[in-house]
């Protein structure tokens, strides 16, 4: 057997409110994954406060680096490269991971790889199963709602994007109206399963000939409905509100994604990002894809890999490692980094 040398990458992720480190072998095997979450801190403020996030990241960074190595039962001598998210994200938060990774690269002499956070989210699928290309991903989180076409492991293009709010952002905003603590997605999802779609909120852009989304109209319709009920002293059923909101989000996401799958005929379909943990969306996509004439292989990463984590960065970095795509010590944060748009993007 011709066994090639294993490639181990130690990865850092600190783009928002999770500080994470991981050792990933050959881009597919998680040897360790440490995630320090700040949710409890930001819950005080009803959303992520960037300066607070940066302060928490620096508190834990050396400790979780040691833990990632210890949990994987390796030392720096066993590591082949160091990877880090360099955007998009909160600039001050990104800088902790970036400076930690660069210092680690200087201290060990190991090569450095800068990874796009969104490519990381999507490539989390590689930790679950082999991705066959071309592949397509629906990436939904607090900051992003995108349909991404992946020609190969390192060339990703956006074919659909949100024109305003991200889906996860809309969840948090209507959550505030319902008095649900930040982050609201999980609770709304649970309530939605106990209610019915009775309010018929708008499904923006659902029939338009593109793969783009818009959630601000839905959010406004939701808020107006609640305000109006308040004014006339009517009490609305929170489960039905949640179910109606979620049905509108899921309808649009599913309709657009299925249409994109029909056009681009990917061999693999991946769902990534925090909102991919939403059960309503998962169930619906499962059904719709199973009903296709020529269904792609579906990879739904487990919930643990849907949130921000460094293992996904280690997976994406491996693909870049194989192509010799390395960064130098001048690597900087790029808070508004974007994947390129496909040539036929409408």
């Amino acid at each position: 057997m011709n066994k090639e040398k294993d490639i181990r990458i130690l990865a850092f992720e600190s783009s928002c409110d999770e500080t994470s480190t991981s050792v990933v072998k050959n881009g597919s095997e998680i040897e360790s994954l440490v995630v320090a979450t700040q949710i409890k801190s930001h819950a005080r403020f009803g959303g992520v406060v960037p300066e607070v996030a940066s302060r928490h990241h620096i508190e834990v960074i050396t400790q979780i680096t040691k833990e990632a190595l210890a949990e994987a039962k390796v030392t720096w001598d066993d590591i082949d490269a160091i990877a880090v998210t360099h955007g998009p994200g909160l600039v001050g938060a990104l800088l902790i991971g970036i400076n930690a990774a660069k210092a680690a690269s200087m201290a060990t002499g190991l090569p450095l790889i800068g990874v796009d956070h969104i490519m990381g989210h999507i490539t989390a699928a590689q930790l679950v199963d082999k991705i066959e290309y071309p592949a397509m991903a629906l990436q939904v989180s607090g900051g992003h709602t995108e349909i991404v076409l992946m020609k190969d492991p390192t060339h990703f293009e956006i074919v659909g994007d949100t024109r305003d709010d991200a889906a996860g952002e809309a969840y948090d905003k209507i959550g505030r109206v319902l008095g649900v603590n930040y982050p609201a997605g999980k609770t709304i999802d649970q309530w939605a399963h106990q209610g019915k779609d009775t309010f018929n909120f708008p499904r923006a852009m659902i029939d338009e000939d593109n793969y783009d989304f818009s959630f601000s109209g839905l959010k406004s319709a939701f808020i107006n409905t609640c305000h109006h009920a308040d004014q006339i002293g009517e009490k609305l059923d929170k489960y039905d509100l949640a179910a109606s909101f979620q049905a509108a989000v899921v309808d649009v996401l599913a309709a657009k994604t299925i249409r994109a799958i029909k056009q681009y005929q990917p061999k693999t379909f991946i769902m990534g990002g925090g909102v991919a943990a939403n059960l309503g969306l998962r169930e619906r996509m499962d059904q719709e894809i199973a009903a296709l004439a020529n269904p792609p292989k579906v990879i739904l990463p487990p919930l643990k890999l849907c949130g921000d984590n460094a293992a996904m960065i280690g997976a994406a970095a491996y693909n870049q490692y194989l192509e010799g795509d390395f960064a130098d010590l001048r690597l900087d944060a790029d808070p508004s980094m974007e994947l390129p748009y496909a040539a036929d993007y409408k």
Partner: peptide, 19 residues
Amino acid sequence: SYTGLRVGLTTAKMLASIL
């Protein structure tokens, strides 16, 4: 500067910790 302080300290503490 808060951001500046973190750039220096993150670098210094990682170097000290690893080495």
